[in-house]
Computed example of a mutant assay.
Amino acid sequence: MHNFIPPERFFPYLTWTEINEMSDKENVVIIQPIGSIEQHGPHLPVIVDSAIATAVTGQALAKLNAEIPAYALSTLFYGKSNEHWHFPGTITLSSNTLSMVLIEMGESIYRAGFRKLVFINAHGGQPQILEMVARDLHQKYEDFMIFPLFVWRVPNAATELLTPKELEYGIHAGDAETSVMLSILPEQVRKDRVLCEYPHNLPENSMLSMEGKLPFAWVTRDLTQSGVLGDATVATQEKGDKILESLAESWVKVIGDIYKFRQPQRYHLEE
C-alpha cells in the first residue's frame, strides 16, 4: 500500500494512538503527494504525475535524516486535468471539488494536532488551486503552516540534461517525464510508441506564451495531436535516474527547511 514511500514514513500505517501520543506535533511534517490521472501521449500511462509525485516523495523520505519527523499521506491520484479531457482516459475533478478535498483533508490534519502540511504536486495544471487552498487554510487557522509546492521547482539535473528547446516546450510527456518513468516504472513505458511533437501554432514574436509571466489559456488539443509536448524519443533511463536522484536530494533539503520553519511574527493592527 505504501508504494514508493518507506513504510516507517507512511502516515496511514500509524495507529490513532501512535498519532495521539506523537511528540512535538506542531513541527512534524505531513506531506500530501498530489498527481493526476490524465493522458500522457501514446507511450506513457495515465498515472505519470501521480507516480512521479509519489516516487520523488518516497526517495526524499528515504534519504531524510531519521531524526526529522516527516510522514507521507496516501497520494491523491485525481486532480484538475480538464485541459486533457478530450483524450480518453483522463479523469478530472473540478477546481471546486479539488479545493474542497484539500481543505477538508487539511482540516483533518489540523484537528489531529499537526501544524505543518506540504503539498508535493507533480501536475502542472493545478498549482494555482493549491496556492489558493493554502492561503485559505492559513487564513482560517493562523497557526497552520501550508506549503503548496511543485515537484519540479527545485534544483534538478533536467536543466543540464535537456536541450534549451525541451526545457521551454517539453512540458508534457517529453524527455524529462519519459526519462523519469523509465527510471521508476520502465515496464509501463511503451518504448515502441515514443514520439516527438512540439506545440503548434504558438504566437510568433509575442510576449505571450503557454506558461510563464504572460500566459494564455489553452487546452491540450489546441497544441498537439498526440497529447505529447516535447521529445520523448531521446529519453533514457540513465537520464531519469539522474533527474530523480537530484529531485530527491533537493526535496530532502526542502523538507528539512520546512521542519525548521517558524511562522513569521504576526502583527496586531491597532484599531
Rank of each mutant, 00 (worst) to 15 (best):
V48Q: 02
F10E: 06
M100A: 01
I129S: 05
Y110I: 00
P33Y: 05
L14Q: 12
R115H: 09
G124T: 07
G124H: 08
M100H: 13
N96Q: 10
I91N: 04
E67M: 07
N121V: 11
A66V: 04
Q126T: 08
E107N: 07
I91W: 03
G124M: 08
L130K: 13
L64F: 12
G113V: 10
Q59P: 07
E18F: 10
S50F: 04
M132K: 12
L93A: 05
W85C: 10
I91L: 13
H123N: 14
N20L: 06
I52T: 03
P88T: 06
L73E: 01
V28R: 08
A62K: 10
V118I: 14
A53G: 13
D24V: 00
A134T: 08
P12N: 12
L93D: 08
E38I: 12
F11V: 07
I109R: 00
T57K: 01
P42N: 05
H43W: 04
I34E: 02
P88N: 02
Y78E: 11
S81R: 10
L102M: 15
F10I: 08
A70D: 02
L130C: 02
L76M: 01
E67D: 15
N20G: 14
T54V: 03
L117Q: 01
G41Q: 02
Q126V: 03
D24G: 06
F77E: 13
G58Y: 04
E107V: 04
W85S: 15
I91F: 06
T75V: 14
G35Y: 04
R111V: 05
Q32H: 03
V46E: 13
M22C: 01
I37E: 09
I109K: 03
V29T: 04
E18V: 11
I129H: 11
